[in-house]
């Protein structure tokens, strides 16, 4: 419980890291209709591709230096000396980031989807997809930013993007499934299954990586 509160406190004080990704997401969503002619039919066409990609981008921004600060000021060293279950701590940290950034972005996805397609059913189904995919992306980018710790976020992006591509393909399939009203539950379960594997494995891998960084 303590860790949750502390991470929350840290994020709250660092508004740039917390609100920043959400605002970037909103800005992309607002910019999208401006780049398309005002005929509404066209607007719907590319909207979901852009939605998933902007979720991907904002998650990348959110995790850009998730460990950097703790690495620079020595908190990570203290942590691995004193705490026995480092992976669990990382899992908690990722959860807080999802709670503070992923969930608001999912909510905004719902709102923008509603605003653009004017279809409540589709938008309601897009919401759980957004929730799950933001958590998956968050975990993947945490892996990337752990590897490229203190080497800049570009390296992290190069490393992580290929890992995130399958999720994007599933999401693309998901939107089509939702629009036709078939098989979307299957895809949702597929994402949920991959999420559970990722949640359990990423913290362990990341803890090994961070230990290697501190050597």
């Amino acid at each position: 419980m303590n860790v949750f509160y502390l991470e929350y406190l840290k994020l709250k004080k660092k508004t740039r890291h917390w609100i920043g990704p959400i605002i970037v997401f909103i800005l992309i969503m607002i910019a999208y209709p401006l780049t398309v002619e005002f005929l509404e039919k066209d607007l719907e066409k590319g909207f979901y591709s852009l939605l998933w990609i902007s979720i991907l981008l904002s998650m990348m921004l959110a995790t850009e230096d998730i460990f950097l600060e703790d690495y620079n000021d020595g908190t990570l060293e203290q942590t691995i000396i004193s705490i026995s279950s480092f992976p669990f701590l990382i899992a908690k940290k990722i959860f807080i980031y999802w709670f503070m950034i992923g969930i608001p972005i999912s909510l905004f996805s719902f709102l923008f989807s509603l605003g653009i397609t004017k279809n409540l059913n589709i938008s309601l189904l897009v919401f759980p997809f957004a929730m799950i995919c933001s958590y998956i992306f968050l975990n993947l980018f945490v892996f990337g930013s752990a590897l490229s710790l203190n080497k800049g976020s570009v390296l992290g992006a190069i490393i992580t993007m290929p890992l995130a591509l399958p999720v994007l393909i599933v999401l693309g399939k998901g939107v089509i499934a939702i629009q036709f009203g078939i098989n979307y539950l299957e895809l949702l379960l597929l994402l949920l299954g991959s999420l559970s594997i990722i949640i359990t494995s990423v913290p362990f891998i990341v803890s090994y990586i961070i230990k290697a960084h501190l050597e």
């Binding site: 590897l147 490393i159 290929p162 890992l163 591509l165 399958p166 393909i169 399939k173 891998i205 990586i209």
Partner: peptide, 23 residues
């Protein structure tokens, strides 16, 4: 060490990529 971790995670991902793009 870091490279090895990335190679392993990437290798896990290769069949997944293949599977997903096969769709």
């Amino acid at each position: 060490k870091l490279l090895s971790w990335l190679v392993i995670v990437g290798f896990v991902n290769i069949p997944i990529i293949k599977k997903s793009v096969d769709w």
